[in-house]
Write a protein that binds this DNA or RNA. Structure first.
Lengths: 133, 133
DNA sequence: CGCACTGTGCTAGAACTATAGCACAGTTGT
DNA sequence: ACAACTGTGCTATAGTTCTAGCACAGTGCG
């Protein structure tokens, strides 16, 4: 399964689900029109509450990423981030990231440390240049 | 300032503080024995509550990263992740990560997308090739 | 239609996060 | 001793997250 929340990250489960569904769509693992797992079976598989999955799906619909059809199921929206050419772009990026993470692991860095490195890079590059120490 | 929490990430502020202090120590921006900003001034600067900073510092002490001296202040622990040689390792890693993030940004990826890419890489490389579900 | 599936809506409670304010206690410098 | 700083501990409140359970409503199939 593409989707697997991690309770130890501090990020709310429903937000992790939102991110992972987006990621699956961005990388082409889920394609426009395709049906997502139903709320109840998915909740059971992930051993989390039905309401938590429902909340994630509702947030995804609010952002226009998926479409909820009452009684029918949840489906990847036809428009949005799943436009043609995007999947290739993301696959290249995926390889780049996998390579970077691989190198960092080879240097003996733990996942926590890698995560902090990336958070700092994302937060810091905007203000690049002003490093005092 | 090295430390700056981001409320929009979903991660609790105090955990962001914990991570950023660890990162500052790992990269050598804060060195063993050095005094950290005091709870009250830091809370005021970040426009967050004193208790939130105190909670972060206490968590850092619990993990042995810093040392809290009642009445004197908070200090980076002499032992732990700030061992000699670590700073160089992290500086190399920092450059690697900055380069990767730069390339991803140049490809037009947003920060959210980059974050998801990395989360997926960190979560996925362990099960590369093996996972059926 | 009947039935099984789907999403929707609600209540209630436990746990956690963050805020605010107050009092206490140890350290440092004068 | 005193003042000004430091961390510690407590109460109270508001908001969010997650769980649990129940009922309702739309869809699709036989």
């Amino acid at each position: 399964m593409i989707i697997k929340p991690n309770p130890s990250l501090g990020v709310p489960i429903y937000l992790q689900l939102v991110g992972q569904v987006k990621h699956a769509i961005e990388t082409g693992a889920l394609r426009p029109g395709e049906q997502l797992p139903s709320i109840r079976p998915l909740a059971e598989e992930l051993v989390i509450n039905v309401n938590t999955v429902a909340k994630a799906y509702r947030e995804l619909e609010r952002e226009g990423v998926i479409e909820l059809r009452h009684g029918a199921g949840a489906f990847v929206a036809e428009t949005g981030r799943a436009r043609p050419g995007a999947a290739e772009k993301f696959r290249g990026a995926q390889a780049l990231v996998a390579d970077a993470v691989g190198q960092l692991r080879k240097r003996g860095l733990h996942d926590d440390e890698i995560r902090r490195l990336f958070e700092a890079a994302l937060a810091g590059l905007r203000e690049a240049g002003g490093r005092g120490g």
